[in-house]
Simulated assay, not measured.
Amino acid sequence: MAITESSDCDLIFYTNPMSRGRIVRWMLEEVGADYRQVLLAYETNMKANDYLAINPMGKVPALVHRGQVVTESAAICAYLADAFPDAGLAPDLTDRAAYYRWLFFAAGPLEAAVMDRVLKAEVTSDLEKMVGYGTYDRTIDTLVQAVSDKPYIAGRQFTAADVYVGSHIMWGMEFGSIPKRPEFEAYVEKLANRPALAAAKALDDNLIPQ
Rank of each mutant, 00 (worst) to 15 (best):
V31F: 10
Y152D: 05
E183N: 00
G132H: 00
A186F: 03
N45D: 15
M130V: 14
T4D: 06
E174Y: 08
I208G: 01
G108H: 04
M115D: 10
D8H: 14
T159L: 12
C77Y: 01
V144D: 05
K129N: 14
G172S: 04
L89Y: 00
E5T: 15
P109L: 04
A53C: 07
M46V: 00
A87K: 15
S19F: 06
L52F: 14
Y14P: 00
Q68Y: 06
Y187Q: 04
V123Y: 10
A87V: 03
A106E: 02
L119K: 06
Y187W: 09
L127Y: 15
A107H: 01
R25G: 08
N55V: 00
A41L: 12
A160C: 00
W26G: 05
L191Q: 11
A90S: 14
Q157K: 15
E183M: 07
P182F: 10
V165P: 05
M27K: 14
R101M: 08
G108L: 00
E189C: 04
A186C: 11
V163A: 08
L119I: 02
A83N: 09
V70G: 11
M46D: 11
M115V: 12
V114Y: 11
A74C: 06
Q210T: 04
I178M: 14
R194S: 09
A192N: 09
A41V: 14
L93F: 09
G172P: 01
K201Q: 10
T15G: 02
D50I: 09
G88C: 09
P109G: 04
A62N: 03
G108D: 07
C9E: 13
I169T: 06
A161P: 01
Y79S: 07
N206W: 05
V123P: 14
L110C: 02
I153R: 10
T4P: 05
Y136E: 06
P85L: 13
Y42P: 13
I140R: 10
A90K: 11
M1P: 12
T159M: 07
G176N: 08
R96V: 08
S19W: 11
K190R: 11
L197V: 05
L40K: 00
K59W: 11
A33D: 00
E174A: 14
A112R: 13
V64D: 02
A78V: 03
A112G: 12
T15E: 07
A154L: 07
Y51I: 00
A160F: 08
R96K: 08
A74L: 05
M18V: 06
R181F: 14
R181K: 14
S177E: 01
E189M: 12
G172N: 08
V38N: 07
E174F: 08
F84R: 02
K59N: 02
V38D: 03
M57K: 15
P91F: 03
L39D: 09
T135C: 07
P85E: 11
I12S: 07
G32E: 10
G88D: 10
R20N: 09
V69R: 08
V70S: 04
Y99D: 10
I178F: 06
I23G: 09
Y99N: 02
G108R: 10
S6F: 09
A160R: 04
V188L: 12
A87N: 06
Q210E: 12
E72P: 13
K180H: 03
A97Y: 15
L80V: 03
G108F: 04
P91D: 04
S177G: 01
G155H: 15
T139V: 02
K59E: 03
D141S: 04
A48S: 13
